[in-house]
């Protein structure tokens, strides 16, 4: 079958991502929720993941949420990466989102 296997090491979920499809979109299509979904446009940083294994292409991402140093280390936005091989990913905690949550629960 065409496409690449994406395995989320944090949650144990795996799903197929078609060529040219973003990892986040592939996950959503399978009805999975193992990566948080925000704007789907590389702008909000909500879908940040770490790619542990495999190769991918990147679309445009907000420099604030995916600065070059982080991208080097495989810390990217799932809505803007397109696999070239099978991938192993893990979730990255969201300091900003956690902060906002605290505020609204006050």
């Amino acid at each position: 079958m065409a496409g690449f296997q994406v395995f989320n090491r944090t949650t144990g979920d795996d799903f197929i991502c078609q060529e040219g499809q973003s990892v986040l979109k592939a996950m959503e299509q399978r009805g999975l929720k193992c990566v948080p979904v925000g704007c789907r446009g590389g702008g909000c940083g909500f879908c940040k993941i770490r790619v542990l294994e495999g190769h991918f292409e990147c679309g445009k991402m907000s420099k604030r949420h995916a600065p070059p140093e982080a991208v080097e280390k495989g810390e990217v936005l799932a809505c803007r990466i397109y696999p070239l091989t099978d991938l192993v990913i893990e979730c990255v905690p969201l300091p900003e989102a956690a902060l906002a949550k605290q505020t609204t629960n006050r």
Binding site: V37, G38, C39, C44, F46, E96, A97, K101, T104
Partner: peptide
Amino acid sequence: LNERFMTVLT
């Protein structure tokens, strides 16, 4: 309460 409304911003 909609999490995305409260936290997804640019």
